[in-house]
Amino acid sequence: MATAAGTSSISNTLTQSQYVPPSYRRSALIPLAFLLPTILVLLVMQVYPAVYAIFISTTRLRRGVAEPIGFANYERLFQTPSFLDGLKNTAIYGGTLIVLTVILGMFLALLLNRRIKFTGSYLVLLFIPWVLSDVVAGTMWRWLFQPNYGILQDWLTATFPYLQNPLFTDPTGSMAIVILASVWQALAYTTILSLGALQTVPHEVLESASLDGANRFQRFFRIILPIIRPTLLIMILLVSIRAINSVGLIYSTTGGGPGRATQTASIYLLITGWRQGEFGLGAAVSVVLLGVNLVLTFFYISLVGRKREAA
C-alpha cells in the first residue's frame, strides 16, 4: 500500500509538472497550422499517387475499369527477362554514375575551393549541363557518337582503329555513352554540393593539423572527409535516386538500345506502362523502384544518424 501511495504521489507530481496552460497549447498548434498546407500538398501530390500506384499494380485496367488480379503483375514481372535485365542495367548505370560523379565532383570542388582565378566562371561553365533539358543533352550526345557523322565517333575511329564497331551500336559502348552523358550532366550538382560542404570545414582546424605535420592526404581523409560525410551521404543518396529514376537522358540518347543494352528499369516502366498501355504491370515496376529508393534512403539516413550518435 505504501508503495502504491508513493507511486501515486510521484505520478501526481509529474502530472502537475507536465501541466501546460491552454494558451500555450494553442500557440503550440500554430506551427502545425503553418505546416498544414505543405502536408496537404505532400499528401495529394506524393502520398496519394504512391498509394494509388500500389492499388493499380494489383489490377488490370480494361476500358477504364480496374479488375483486381492480386499479385499477378509482380509474379509476371519477376519472370520477365526485360525487367530483370533492366534492374541489372540500372545497377551498372547507377553504380558507375555514383562513383564517377562523386569522385570527380569532389576533385573539382577541391580545386575550386583553393580560390583559384575565375572560380565563378568555372562554376557557371560547370553548371550549364545541369540546367539543360535531358532531351537536349541526350540528343547532343547521340549526335556526337552517331556512327556516320558523329564528331567523337570519328575521332575514336581514327584514334583507335581496332575498335571495330561504333560505340553507339555496341552494347557496352552504348552504356558507356549513356554513363558519360549522365556524368557530364550530374557533375555540376555534385561539384556544387561538395564545394558547399568543403567551405563549412573550419580553416583553423586545417591549419592546426598542418602545424601538427599532417600532409594533404591526411588532412583530407582524417579531417575534411569526416566533417563533410553527412553532405556526402546525402549527395550519394540523391544521385542514386536520380540514377534509378532517370529516363529522359537515356531515352533520348540510345532509346534503351541497341537491343536492351541500355534499357534500365525506368525505361522498362516507360515502355510497359505508357507505350504498351499495361498500367498494372507498369505500376508494379514503379512500386518495386519506390521500394528500392526507400531502402536506399533509410540506409543512407541511418548511416548519417549513426555518425551523429557517435559524435
Binding site: Q146, P147, N148, N165, P166, F168, T169, G257, P258
Partner: peptide
C-alpha cells in the same frame, strides 16, 4: 550492312 542500321531513328537511310 552498315552499323548505322542498328541506330535508333532514321539514320539507316543515309548510306
Amino acid at each position: 550492312a552498315p552499323q548505322v542500321t542498328l541506330a535508333p531513328g532514321f539514320d539507316f537511310e543515309e548510306p
